[in-house]
Amino acid sequence: MVELKSGRAGGMGEILDVEGPYEVAPLGRALVELAEHRPEIVGLTADMGRFSDIHPFRDAHPDRFFQVGMAEADLLLIAAGLAKTGKIAYCTSYAAFITRRALDFLIIACAHSKANVKILAGMPGLMNPYGATHQATDDIAVLRMIPDLSIIDPCDATELAQVVKAVADIEGTVYVRSLRGKVPVVFDPDEYTFEFGKAKELRTGSEVGVISSGFMTQRALVAADAATEHGVSAGVLHVPTIKPFDTEGVLRFVAGVERLVIAENHQMSGGLATLVVEALYDAGIQVPLIRIGIQHRFHEAGSQAYMEEKGGLDQTRITRAVIDGI
């Protein structure tokens, strides 16, 4: 149990599980590497350079970096305009501000125009200590209905760095749920390769299948390991691309297990669980499932541990769901 008033956020919007290896600002570092041999890459931010981790790019390529000020609508418009002159425009702000304040601009100037705009949205889901004003617990639900928009929810530093580079060659507008600060390294960069539109089976199991995205996949892996110790055979399917959704990959995974746990850093409706349920229903498949996600309410300000336990994302909950089915 997390004590009230016991602490403050360890870092602004950072993931908790950094006891193991981590990388600092993988987004910015990957973007700098990419931009070195891609002169068409430009970067923008709406006063969130430091808090989105695009600052390494700003320092390495000041001529290609544009600070637009606290103006998220303008951020996306300027990015779309740059894209129309042949640039690939990477822009950063918080997920909450992008998906709420600037939504029409994302839909029309970016997605509808198929503009080469890559939105790296910081602190998606329940990751911001400032409370409901800053917490995009609904970003996937809002965005998944927009045609011609891709959505990616990477797990760790390895995948985020790969995604930052991959989206340059994905046509049109892409929304990435970004991770900042000290970002855990869960996947071995020599072994893991992000593939756009493909779910990845990270563990094979026959009793329970965990389907997860974002940093919840790290917890899904911990839960699956714990399940194995308890004699429960647990598989893990990581779904980094939310849109377009890998229906085929999900159905294949589901066919090999008896029950499901779906875990996401998003409200339990409108995100990954909803996509999975829709796919199962369309395929005529019924399978017992537990949804691990953020409760449907406005959430508190507080440390990451405090928010997650109150919000429903903590490790204990997912482990219990995987092992005990409750």
Binding site: V42, F66, A73, L77, I78, A79, A80, G81, K84
Partner: peptide, 9 residues
């Protein structure tokens, strides 16, 4: 805003 982006480009 898009015109500003084009001008910057």
């Amino acid at each position: 805003g898009q015109a500003v982006g084009m001008a910057l480009g």
